[in-house]
């Protein structure tokens, strides 16, 4: 079975570490690549056309190119328009949730404040039945509930 290729785009080193540790902790068959901002994310995606990630975790508040801009760029690029994008942000502002939903993100994960919760969230998202989730995709299902 092929490894699930996960791309994490987050400028915060600690958060990337939490993420990596949590992913390792849930011991699933995944391969993680980490990038620091939207710009490097886009460069990577446009370069790796033959080997795209299966799932992108996108932080919103980042320097150089933020998550909103990156999300827009992804959806503007024809071969990336169906790429699974999970927003991964500290913000729980309704405004941000709304905006990323409108811009075509697939799920919104609020960064948890405990490690066990993080592991729970990641497990849920990685093992998610995406075909089912996207089949009946509504705003109510956009924000991940743990």
């Amino acid at each position: 079975m092929n490894k699930l290729k996960i791309l994490l785009v987050d400028d915060d080193e600690d958060d990337r570490q939490f993420f990596a540790d949590a992913l390792e902790g849930i011991a699933l068959n995944t391969e993680l690549r980490q990038l620091e901002n939207g710009k490097s994310c886009m460069e990577y995606l446009l370069q790796e056309t033959d080997n795209p990630p299966d799932l992108v975790f996108l932080d919103l508040n980042m320097p150089i190119m933020n998550g909103f801009e990156c999300l827009e760029a992804i959806r503007r690029t024809p071969h990336l328009k169906d790429l699974l994008v999970a927003i991964y942000s500290t913000s729980s502002a309704e405004r941000d949730i709304e905006e990323t939903f409108e811009k075509g993100a697939n799920i919104y994960i609020k960064k948890p404040s405990s490690f066990s919760e993080l592991k729970k969230s990641l497990k849920q998202v990685v093992k998610m039945n995406w075909a089912y989730h996207l089949n009946d995709f509504k705003k109510e299902n956009f924000l991940l509930k743990i």
Partner: peptide, 21 residues
């Protein structure tokens, strides 16, 4: 308050929870 204060606080809580676990 919503973002910049919560961000470091969340990290504190995260580290605390890892220490705890």
């Amino acid at each position: 308050a919503s973002h910049d204060l919560q961000e470091p606080l969340r990290k504190i809580q995260m580290f605390v929870s890892r220490l705890n676990e």
